[in-house]
Design a protein around this nucleic acid. Structure first.
Length: 668
DNA sequence: TTAGGGTTAG
């Protein structure tokens, strides 16, 4: 770079001053990274020798401005400031101040920017204010922002598009989206940046409805067309979004001409964040064939979708892309990669990524703790938590959710109690509802149902359905009818539409052989129009994810799958297998219940993998519900009969099954 | 000149 630039330099003795100046300006403009710092230095020296850039007078101000900007762009703010200070007063116009203030802002030194602003003479102009307002938002300095707003209004500059847009962002980033909206509403003219700024402003304050409404309004009006930035701005507001809203952004995406990586990345992230993993992965595939080159952000956005689908093959291929493109170290990307492996049931691969990381933050540690926890390896999760503390990373609220859940999965009762107490005593983290739910789960599944119930009654916050749900689940495991009914009562009041809790209650009755009550639960469901969520299982074969629903006959290999199931069940019965009919919801004849159970989606998925792969390939299945007792038993037997490793991810944890033994040790 | 995209739990 340096040598080519030097070669481009005009001869010193040129008599064409203007031409020389143009070339120099051009060269300086190209110096934008620390690697060009030496080039800037030599150009500066050249100017000094020709008497053009020493600050001693007689310089061309335009060249000096470019030189200051080039030093700043290369990261040498000190030299930029020295040069700035050396410019004689009469020569130091607004442009010099604007360039220096901008340099501070772009190097995240908003305080220096504001200090310089206050000493500015001549006064700021419409180029200064947008940048100064950005400094206020970076410094989260609302009073300073308000002062600037007043000054702007006095000058009548609030009608300037750039100034008004910057005001919107300043107010929004200082937590005043109401004021931001006021500025937006009063603007005589708005461009795409104004809209994006207000959409992002509402999203930032978690006023998701207003953010999406603004996006919708923008799309409906015949004003500026939404662009990639619009998608990026609305993205944080699109967590658990309504299908219609996701449809809206998809339409915007489709209508966008010449889509760049930002639009693709935002759309993929929106799908990922809304558990629409198949759509996210599908869009990524389209991007690979017909879109721009995926970057680190693309990959970090699609990896959670791979985890959701247990698309291990795709996840591994993305890992290869990361290696090939030399994208590491990149902590966010590595966190996503580690989590993908963990969610695909590959704990060892997740650990490899974790071990290879140069820098780890609380997200990295939480991910690996959670990975060990959901795989039933609670003691190791605890050891990692302690290692995290030794390494100087402080746990946050989410880290404790993972840790307590890990204790719960492994039945580590005392450890869980101790860590829960330490949250308040030692770490000054106020337990949230999620932590209480973990504790109820821990106590309940360890068999301390009475204690779990007493714990709920003493909670300082109102228990929600997750808390009561954990208790009801424990009552099913330990067949506690009395407290189970209390929990169910609360649940039917809190979330009368959620079918899962009716199913749990009916399982409790079925286990006790009280079929009359099972029938009455069923009729309550029918009366209220509540349908059981149909079970479904995903399984990856080659590069395709296959989805099976309960009783599915739509698969091309359906006949073979059912034949395989028959063979497996026959072998199992020889080994003494009896269907665990209390797992079935309906009070029907024993034989019917059994046939209902045999078509659970996870059984179909297991048979499908057995047909299509060899013994060395583990069966990896991801479900949308908790695995039922019968399927769990079935999987353990298959692992013996077919000599296969089976890894099932249900909505609660992993079941790593080998030689008839499950990593959950039947504790789930 | 102004806005805007990634990772962690249950």
């Amino acid at each position: 770079m340096r040598s080519s630039l030097t070669r481009l330099l005009p001869p010193k003795s040129t008599d064409s001053g203007r031409c020389c100046c143009t070339v120099l300006v051009d060269l300086l403009d190209r110096c934008r990274s620390p690697a060009s710092l030496r080039t800037v230095g030599s150009l500066h020296a050249r100017l000094l020798l020709s008497g053009g850039g020493g600050g001693g007078g007689g310089e061309q101000p335009a060249l000096l401005v470019k030189l200051i900007r080039a030093y700043a762009a290369c990261g040498d703010l000190c030299r930029a400031r020295l040069l700035f200070d050396s410019v004689p007063g009469p020569l130091k116009n607004t442009v010099f101040f604007n360039v220096m203030i901008r340099s501070y802002v772009s190097h995240r030194r908003p305080r220096d920017a504001l200090r310089l602003l206050s000493s500015m003479s001549p006064g700021p102009d419409h180029y200064t204010y947008p940048c100064a307002l950005k400094a206020c938002s970076d410094a989260a300095d609302l009073p300073a922002g308000r002062q600037l707003h007043a000054a702007v209004a006095r000058l009548g500059l609030d009608a300037n598009l750039f100034v008004a847009n910057a005001l919107i962002t300043m107010y929004a980033r200082c937590g005043r989206s109401d004021r931001a909206f006021q500025v937006f509403a009063e603007m005589p003219r708005r461009d795409v940046v104004s809209w994006n700024a207000i959409i992002a402003g509402f999203a930032r304050e978690r006023r998701f409805d207003r953010s999406i409404a603004a996006c919708r309004e923008m799309a409906a009006l015949r004003g500026p067309a939404p662009d990639a930035g619009t998608l990026a701005s609305v993205l944080p507001a699109m967590a658990d979004a309504a299908p219609a809203d996701i449809g809206l952004v998809r339409d915007l995406f489709d209508e966008m001409p010449a889509k760049g990586p930002i639009a693709w990345n935002a759309m993929i992230a929106i799908y990922s964040n809304n558990s629409m993993a198949k759509e996210a992965v599908g869009l990524f595939a389209r991007m690979e064939t017909a879109g721009p080159e995926p970057d680190a952000l693309t990959l970090a956005s699609v990896l959670p979708a791979c985890g959701q689908l247990s698309a291990f093959g795709l996840g591994k291929r993305i890992h290869e892309i990361i290696k090939r493109k030399g994208m590491r170290p990149n902590m966010v990307l590595e966190n996503a990669l580690m989590d993908m492996y963990a969610n695909c049931g590959c704990l060892a691969d997740a650990r490899d990524v974790f071990d290879g990381m140069r820098v780890r933050d609380v997200v990295s540690w939480t991910s690996i703790i959670s990975a060990y926890g959901t795989h039933g390896r609670g003691k190791e999760a605890i050891a990692l938590f302690e290692k995290m503390r030794e390494s100087g990373v402080e746990p946050d609220s989410i880290a404790f959710v993972s840790l307590l859940a890990a204790c719960s999965h492994a039945g580590l009762l005392e450890e869980g109690r101790r860590y829960f107490r330490s949250m308040t005593n030692k770490y000054r983290i106020v337990p949230r509802i999620e932590h209480y739910a973990c504790m109820v789960d821990l106590l309940g599944r360890a068999g301390c149902i009475e204690e779990a119930y007493a714990f709920i009654t003493k909670m300082p916050i109102r228990p929600n359905d997750r808390v009561w749900g954990a208790l009801l689940g424990a009552c099913r495991v330990h067949s506690n009818m009395e407290i189970g009914l209390l929990a169910a009562d609360e649940l039917f009041r809190l979330v009368p539409e959620q079918s899962g809790y009716y199913v749990l209650l009916s399982n409790i009755y079925a286990r006790a052989g009280r079929w009359e009550e099972v029938t009455s639960v069923r009729s309550v469901m029918a009366d209220k129009g509540i349908k059981k969520v149909p079970g479904c299982s995903n399984v990856e074969l080659g590069s395709k994810v296959h989805t099976f629903h309960v009783g599915d006959q739509s698969h091309l290999q359906s006949k073979m799958i059912y034949r395989k199931l028959d063979v497996l069940l026959g072998r199992m019965k020889e080994l003494g297998y009896v269907a665990a009919t209390e797992s079935a919801l309906h009070d029907v004849e024993e034989e019917d219940k059994e046939s209902h159970l045999t078509v659970h989606s996870e059984k179909l998925a297991i048979a499908f993998v057995l047909i299509n792969t060899g013994r060395e390939t583990p069966v990896r299945i991801t479900m949308n519900l908790r695995i039922c007792g019968d399927c769990h038993h079935f999987a353990k037997l298959v692992s013996t009969i077919a000599e296969r490793e089976i890894i099932i991810k249900d909505t609660n944890r992993f079941h790593h099954i080998e030689n008839g033994v499950c990593s959950c040790r039947d504790y789930w």
